[in-house]
Design a protein around this nucleic acid. Structure first.
Lengths: 131, 131
DNA sequence: CATGCACCCTGTAGCAACTAGAGGGTCAAG
DNA sequence: CTTGACCCTCTAGTTGCTACAGGGTGCATG
């Protein structure tokens, strides 16, 4: 089953430009070409791109995805590294949640303190202004 | 009280490069210069930069900060626009929290399903791989 | 057979919000 | 008078794409 870049894109929810970008940065190997110089993809590429996209949806960076791909290629290897990578990412996500929750509280308090009127007496502007 | 860029930076927790960057994009007005062509700042700039930094810490984008600064200059204006801007931002933050929390659950589940062994049998890789 | 349209190609530039570096000038202390 | 900390401008890099510009290909329709 051979696909053009557009078909592969539709199959994986990826734009053609993004696929070409992944190729350029070495996440996807350069595929074969058709007579008219079109990229042609098969099952292997579909699998690899699906992997990349799923990892991206889970918030892994392209560098982390690159590492995961490399690790996944060596099926005999101990999966502790994979585990550590995932745990590291989870920790990062959790830190972001904590940060954003603190932010949310601050913003909500700021907004709650504003009771309309003019900018001159606005508590939001005041909260941002010089101490 | 006159300050160099470094002193202003220390006072506001901003790197000199960032201050110059804010100037370049028009968030800060071009300051006066000393004899040796050093930027020289006073209280007004300190206040403005503090405002910017506080807004940034609250997660407002530079465009939003620009709008807030403009709004804050017109003290007679109704502060409804300020309020709307802040509420919009809060909504965005809350959406991010929801998204990240979903992500966190997925990641945690993935990690929990991994019980060591080789990459070949790793549930994390499996979860990312082709269906 | 021409023509139109959807698709593909390469290459470059742009987004946010800085950050880092090159290659130099200035200033105050010792 | 020299050393070191600071300042200057300008350019390029970061992340992960996205959006052109300016062309070529392939297939269906008139």
């Amino acid at each position: 089953m051979v696909m053009t870049i557009g078909t592969l894109g539709k199959a994986t929810g990826t734009k053609a430009e993004t696929i070409r970008y992944y190729e350029k940065i070495g996440l996807l190997p350069p595929p074969g070409r058709s007579g008219g110089n079109y990229r042609s993809y098969g099952e292997a590429e579909l699998g690899r791109l699906s992997f990349i996209r799923r990892a991206r949806q889970l918030g892994f960076s392209l560098d982390q995805v690159r590492a995961l791909l490399e690790l996944s290629e060596d099926r005999g290897r101990d999966c502790a590294t994979v585990d550590a990578l995932a745990r590291g990412h989870l920790a990062e996500v959790e830190r972001k949640i904590v940060d954003l929750t603190a932010l949310q509280r601050e913003l909500a308090a700021m907004i709650a303190s504003c009771h309309g009127g003019t900018v001159g007496s606005c508590r939001i502007i005041e909260a941002l202004g010089p101490c």
